[in-house]
Structures are given as C-alpha cells and as structure tokens.
Simulated assay, not measured.
Amino acid sequence: MPCLTGSARPRASVMRAARESYRPVVSSPHVKSAAVAAALSALDEGRTPDRSVYRGAVRALLTALAERAPGRSVEVRVPPYGAVQCVPGPRHTRGTPPNVVETDPETWLRIATGRLDWGEAVTEGRVRVSGIRADLSAYLPL
C-alpha cells in the first residue's frame, strides 16, 4: 500500500547530511602532510608504514601532482592505493590509456618528495612508463 503524503518520516541519513558533511576529517592538508611525513619517517627507519598511513601519503602526493599538472593525458598508477589522470593534452576515454606511469608506493613517495630522481628511477626499472607524454620530470618533485 502506498505511503500517504506527509506520513513518511525522513531517513536519519538525510537528517544527518543536512547537519554535517559525510567526508571524514582526514581530508585536511595538515593530516595529509602528516601522513607523508610519517610514511617517509618509517621508510627512513627501514620499516614499512602502516597501510592507512601509506594510503594517505600516496593519495596526498597523487592529488598534489594532479593539481600541479592538471589534465587527463597521463594516468599515474600507484597500486593498490590510487591513480590519477594528469598532464595537459589529449585525453583518453576508454580502455587502457596510451600514456601510463606505474610504480610501487615506496618509489612514488621517494620520487614525489625528491629523494629519488625521476630519470634514475625510470632507468633502474622502478617506474614503468609508456607513451610519449609519460615523462613527469617537469612536475617532480612536488
């Protein structure tokens, strides 16, 4: 039987959404920079950072790259934590993009913060690149 107009109560989530944002507080720049610092500190000590710290640091630096090089012609992947599209130029719409940069989280943190040179990382095979626009040396370190 259909509900009569005005007799349905609003859902709690709708009421909550009117009062506060659904986004967690961890999106502030301070928390992001703290995650990067904590992850680098752990790596310097020879430890693997906690998964949540690693994720926050990788995503913060990927976001910074996307802001520094806005566009959609290159996809930068740091599995399993994130990927962004950046660099001005023609964008791809379906399938595997023609310009891809992929690396592991530790290498990404070191490259993005200037602790490892882009060219050195590519030469050593720590970063896999494909496509003519996949050179990020003009945008790194962040």
Rank of each mutant, 00 (worst) to 15 (best):
P2F: 09
G6L: 07
P10L: 07
P10I: 00
A12L: 02
S13H: 04
V14G: 12
A17G: 11
A17H: 06
A18R: 15
R19Q: 05
Y22G: 15
Y22H: 14
V25C: 03
V26G: 10
S27Q: 11
S28V: 09
H30D: 08
K32I: 04
K32T: 05
S41D: 11
S41N: 12
A42I: 04
L43D: 05
G46H: 02
T48A: 06
P49F: 00
R51G: 11
A57D: 02
A57N: 08
V58M: 08
R59V: 05
A60V: 02
A60Y: 05
A60D: 08
L61M: 11
L62Q: 03
A64K: 15
L65H: 04
A66R: 15
R68A: 01
R68S: 01
A69Y: 01
R72E: 09
S73F: 03
V74L: 05
E75Y: 13
V76H: 00
V76A: 01
R77S: 14
P80Y: 08
V84C: 01
V84W: 02
Q85Y: 12
C86V: 15
C86T: 15
P88Q: 08
G89N: 07
R91F: 05
R91E: 06
H92N: 11
T96R: 07
T96W: 08
T96Y: 06
P97H: 14
P98C: 05
V100D: 10
V101G: 00
V101A: 06
E102G: 00
T103L: 10
D104W: 14
P105V: 11
P105C: 06
W108S: 04
R110E: 12
I111F: 07
T113W: 01
R115L: 09
R115K: 13
L116D: 02
D117C: 07
E120S: 14
V122S: 09
V122E: 01
T123A: 10
E124N: 11
G125D: 07
R126T: 02
V129G: 00
S130V: 12
I132K: 10
A138H: 05
L140I: 09
L140W: 04
